[in-house]
Design a binder for these strands. Sequence first.
DNA 1: TTGTACGCGTTATCAG
DNA 2: CTGATAACGCGTACAA
Lengths: 337, 337
Amino acid sequence: MNIGEIARRAGVSRSTVSYALSGKRPVTEETKRRIQAVIDELDYRPNAAARALKEGRTRTLGLVIPPAGARLTDMQLGFVASVVEAAARADLDVLLSPSGGDHDRSFERIVSGRRVDGAILMEIRLEDERVARLQQTGLPFVTIGHTSNPHGTCWVDVDYGTLIARCVHHLADLGHRWIALINRSAELVAAGYGPAHRALAGFTEAAVQRDLRGITLTCGDDPIAGETCIEQLRQDHPEITAVVTLNEAALPGIQRGLERAGVRIPQDFSIAGVAARHWAEDFRPQLTAADVPTLEMGASAVDLLLERIAAPGAPARHLLLTPPISLRASTGPAPTR
Amino acid sequence: MNIGEIARRAGVSRSTVSYALSGKRPVTEETKRRIQAVIDELDYRPNAAARALKEGRTRTLGLVIPPAGARLTDMQLGFVASVVEAAARADLDVLLSPSGGDHDRSFERIVSGRRVDGAILMEIRLEDERVARLQQTGLPFVTIGHTSNPHGTCWVDVDYGTLIARCVHHLADLGHRWIALINRSAELVAAGYGPAHRALAGFTEAAVQRDLRGITLTCGDDPIAGETCIEQLRQDHPEITAVVTLNEAALPGIQRGLERAGVRIPQDFSIAGVAARHWAEDFRPQLTAADVPTLEMGASAVDLLLERIAAPGAPARHLLLTPPISLRASTGPAPTR
DNA sequence: TTGTACGCGTTATCAG
DNA sequence: CTGATAACGCGTACAA
């Protein structure tokens, strides 16, 4: 079923069918109806490749996700879902590319095969070769997360440094003097993963400001690692009375570890952090935390990208979100010994 | 950068460049080298739309996922990741379509806009209009899950009925006489979600065979629902000594509920089920369960789809997996009263 | 409202 | 056997 066939059956020319569909030139109601009838009957839809070839755009967005080897975290999944949904609202499709570094065939197809009108990158590192590659090709793109030198790029991110610092201040206000940061995994830190580094910086600075004893440690992104991590922490540093974390996947293990040890939250021990809302609400008692607005971030990334595609020359915009910390039940006054 | 530009700079014709790249006709080594040099210099890659238009195939697979409104479960995420990875191995891209029913614009673009060479559908219901729609368009497709009348369609699924029945038999062998099935959510059951219905059937049949008192209940797909569910169950049916479940997302809540009530697993209470491996291993004590092989299933779905695209007329194949039940630590002899 | 050139890669056909 | 020419796939939009 191509446009010529529709034209033939409706007794008009191909261009008339095209104009009737796009509305870019007026077409008689009567003709329009006849054409529509044929289209409905044959269930015609324009060939996407032909249209893309002619228009020079694909109506498709690329979404670069971490390779499947590493299980996607809940938060990454939230971004994927919200990006796909926001794109669908704009009648755009989303092409997935699972790629870590560059030199990846799938990534190269996306960036230089003109398969997409623009791309969204996730899991940005402080130094990220994919960003450099994208800049060099000139394909419009937006990153979720930002590099150490984000000038001139479009991005949306959560201000982990500020948020973690706020958690520290909140705990300091409650009288806690010995606080630990449970960071993301050691591998991510080693790879230069932005949120982990910025959280560490925010924690350290706040601890210094409040003259706290702060200790920092990394922890795998899963409940089992969380459980061993909190056990180890309480053994090595029994003086610690509060924890700050951005490692949501470890939360169930942290909770289990504390519960097993008979530690009451928040009477004996406080915990606060940054996490998607459902992680905070699944925690017992519910976690005082800044809720990462994945839905909003994905939608904003798509908005920013569409702007950039429409006006590639316009100055790069970005969005640094600092969601409020929701006071729930996991933080309380420091225990008096 | 188009093929004509490359040809011009290399001092040959467009067709020679094409043949040099595809190898479908011999080209002198010398010419080939010159062409390759220009391509490398300009970082040329053929325009995907033009190629798709000419070849009549897009080198793209469609993956229809549940709409983002309902948070994707871990298992669904596993399918997405494994499908994307398997497709990347075959140098295919994956186009995502978040659609529930049909009449969905994104779904329609996929199935009738010739944007993909084939599609993979997830979250199949016993009666699924999307499957009917796909059959009517003739686009090759494979489903993860199967309808109540899967004849003539390609699919890959886990045999929930048999697996849940095996769990029941295992528990019956251990002397349990009062067993409950914690099913997926009531909404999914009402929507005719296959795994929920087949699990129910398998449970009921096994319970009858072993002359057990079986009670069945639905439970939301999250820890909080799991916790209230298990509390309710123990209150309404204190005689229950074992639970079978396929609701992996509820597991953390089930565990927490039992732990809070001071119920020891497996001394006082046994639990078994079907779940992705990490859910089973995160459970305390580790869960006796059939591990759903999402990685293998996603890869198989892609294989099946590629076969089907290559030979659309061939008889439809399917794969019904019955992974072994891994005996871990959550099941033991029924307590003697 | 219609005829037609165009976008770009592929491949059948023809010439050397 | 190598290289070039031209037609084709299909929707769009300008000129008529």
